[in-house]
Design a binder for these strands. Sequence first.
DNA 1: CACTTTGCATATCGTCGTTATATAACACTG
DNA 2: CAGTGTTATATAACGACGATATGCAAAGTG
Lengths: 222, 222
Amino acid sequence: MSPRPAHPELSATLIEAAARLLAEEGPGALSTRRLAAEAGTSTMAVYTYFGGMDDLVRAMVREGFTMLNDRMSAVAETGDPASDVAALGLAYRRNALEHRHLYGVMFGGSNLAGFRLTDEDRQHGRYTLEILVKTVARCMAAGRFSAGDAELVAHQMWIAVHGLVTLELGGYLVEPYDADTCFDAQIRSLLIAAGDEIAAATQSAAASRTRPDVQPLAAGRP
Amino acid sequence: MSPRPAHPELSATLIEAAARLLAEEGPGALSTRRLAAEAGTSTMAVYTYFGGMDDLVRAMVREGFTMLNDRMSAVAETGDPASDVAALGLAYRRNALEHRHLYGVMFGGSNLAGFRLTDEDRQHGRYTLEILVKTVARCMAAGRFSAGDAELVAHQMWIAVHGLVTLELGGYLVEPYDADTCFDAQIRSLLIAAGDEIAAATQSAAASRTRPDVQPLAAGRP
DNA sequence: CACTTTGCATATCGTCGTTATATAACACTG
DNA sequence: CAGTGTTATATAACGACGATATGCAAAGTG
């Protein structure tokens, strides 16, 4: 179906240029002509290597999914699984903020030149949840969460953080209810609803956020 | 700034046609030429009445905000404020599903022909929260929720339902964790986190959903 | 009546994604 | 080495897009 690149070097260059253009100048800057100029080639390269703009965007989206997955996988597994859940949420949010336009294409349904996701693409997105599901299951096994459907709880957390991120990217979260405040509140609510009594006892989650991708929610933990 | 329509008839016809095209054929169908053909006029009408495609989209978005606001305002105020909160969430979701493409433009940052929201537009979106804030405050006053920041709780609910709706519209919520299941779970979690003991005691929220825009969460209520 | 203003159709410009065509580089056969 | 088929890329072109300029007819005004 999709033509395999014979010279993967130029193919990678195109994806890199596309990602850079999308990140730095937004979706409006992504065009075959602009892309060709940036990569030092002609517009035909897009078609010989990818078959069209759609498939190039699709390849970029796939890279975005693996980046997100790498980011989630890099979150250290500590002895406090509930803290790990919060850290995963923060990692998810940070990845979205760093690749905001790409995130919009991946999950927000941002119509990039009429681009539409396929079910296969979405499957890559759902795959990201597996790390979160496992961590939630660890919370339940450790008695930190009340026993239940780990996958459903993971979905809830995904939905909540995704909602936060999209509203944040859309500019809808402003002071005093800015994204940081709401993020802490969302994580806290999810932990409480999952049955985490320690989170329920914690006064506020807006403490120091020094460690990267880790929420200080488990500050009162032994 | 924005030119006032001298013949509001054609202006309304254009907005209607644009809304219909967006709803029925998606963002790709919205073009000045197509719009002119549907309205039986020329492409110039878009510029004389609105000043450009951007402003026409803006006018449509504004209509979308008032539609959403009307929908939320139409939710009956019952004696059970927690049930009203859930009903508002369902009304929000139903409005988004009925105007899915418009919702994407309003909140999802869907780039419709390079269209970008202004802060004034976003203010219209935030205004919708006021109804929810009042209802949450009623919950707190009635002792149904533990006392706290009603505006923050309303934001949390907004974020959660918005996240659900966008993932639902993006096709990311499939069985067995489909949108209905996740919606019930989100509402339930929010009520529990807000301190609603009745919701916490309720086994599941996935009971009969017969009454329009009303969640049966308060089934165990006197 | 003449004169200005207004509303909309037509034609045009530059850019978009895409395709057709032409050319140049390559691999292989004899 | 010549000849041949394949592949990669550049160039040019097509239809459609948003936007603008121009032109013209109807309405308004003295």
